[in-house]
């Protein structure tokens, strides 16, 4: 098969947004190589996803359905992908650079001694070899990285770096099925439980992010006498009752600075920055965040940055398009009310 394979990633049966961005990148590469895009869908119930993959640019679909594949596990999925690469020698394999996409493609690239360009921001092709711009040194520089050998070229693309194609109605890709590579007793990892956080917006997919920092502790509300650390109580109350309502109104994800996470104001899953998540929303609102260089590493590619801070000398204002000097506990509620009024939400 001379083709570009795009792995379609789904969670609870629904495609994740970044997967159609990866399919658009696969489409671009396939057009350069003049080969079709084959969408690979692993797990039972993939028929609906197959039609959707066709709308987003796949020419053909391979379905690999088996009860051992219903919950993603690296060993089981890499078994499928590696066997497919070994038997069909595709020109490239593309996926979104999510937790799963990164490890799945890295595993199959290793199994087949293939080159991999991970978490790419842009792609180009010269003489059949793929070249990519990637973030290096905590996002402070770009590294132009090239494939220099091997057969199948593996690529994962960063969320929001590529735009999904406009869905084509009525596309009907040819669907074939593929056998699983491993049986359940060959897979040593077992998933015991998966506790999902309901209703939260994924930071790396988010178009709008509202983040809070150390300044969240300046909540004018009084902490109850039995609260323990008053600053922690005030900040947590502020995240829950001041920042979250703005995020809900904007359909935004809630982020935080390392200082806020380390002080125990909000769980680590929300941390944006060098040892947290790297995000690239259209709008990033930083409230009570001074903007240390380590924080900037995680959010500097945001399109519009709004800084709200008491200290007009805070470095975050150097990054910002719009700056509001003042008390976030007055400005954020006013902003929430204004957005509700103007957008009729």
């Amino acid at each position: 098969m001379s083709a570009v394979i795009a792995w379609v990633e789904a969670f609870n049966g629904k495609a994740i947004p970044a997967t159609w961005e990866a399919l658009a990148a696969a489409r671009m590469l396939a057009d350069k190589f003049a080969v079709p895009v084959v969408a690979l869908i692993i797990g039972e119930g993939g028929e609906a996803l197959a039609a959707e993959a066709g709308q987003f640019g796949a020419d053909e679909v391979l379905l690999c359905a088996d009860s051992s594949l219903n919950n993603y596990r690296l060993e089981a999925y890499a078994g499928v992908l590696t066997a497919l690469v070994q038997s069909h020698h595709p020109r490239a394999v593309v996926a979104a650079a999510t937790s799963r996409g990164r490890e799945l493609l890295a595993a199959s690239a290793a199994d087949t001694d293939s080159p991999m360009l991970g978490d790419v921001l842009s792609l180009s092709v010269g003489d059949g070899w793929i070249s990519a711009d990637r973030a290096g040194y905590a996002g402070k520089v770009l590294s132009e990285t090239q494939v220099v050998g091997g057969e199948t070229q593996f690529v994962t693309v960063r969320s929001r770096a590529f735009k999904a194609l406009d869905p084509k109605a009525g596309a009907a890709p040819q669907v074939s099925s593929l056998a699983p590579a491993l049986s359940e007793d060959q897979i040593v990892s077992k998933v015991e439980s998966f506790e999902t956080e309901a209703g939260t917006v994924n930071l790396t997919d988010a178009a709008v992010i509202v983040s809070g920092g150390r300044g969240m502790a300046n909540n004018p509300k009084d902490a109850p006498a039995d609260a323990g650390d008053a600053a922690v109580w005030k900040a947590r109350d502020g995240f829950a009752n001041v920042l979250q309502p703005l995020a809900d109104t904007l359909g935004a994800a809630v982020g935080a600075s390392r200082a806020a996470v380390d002080a125990g104001y909000i769980p680590y899953a929300h941390q944006v920055g060098q040892t947290g998540k790297v995000v690239a929303p259209d709008l990033y609102i930083a409230a009570g965040i001074s903007g240390a260089i380590q924080h900037q590493a995680g959010m500097r590619t945001s399109k519009i940055i709004v800084a709200i801070n008491k200290d007009k000398e805070a470095p975050i204002f150097k990054m910002a398009r719009y700056g509001l000097v003042g008390d976030l506990y007055q400005i954020i509620p006013a902003l929430t009310a204004e957005v509700k009024k103007r957008l009729g939400k």
């Binding site: 293939s114 520089v141 220099v148």
Partner: peptide, 12 residues
């Protein structure tokens, strides 16, 4: 066998 190389670093 070599598979990838950094061709150059670039400023943002």
């Amino acid at each position: 066998p070599p598979r990838t190389k950094v061709a150059r670093y670039k400023n943002l």
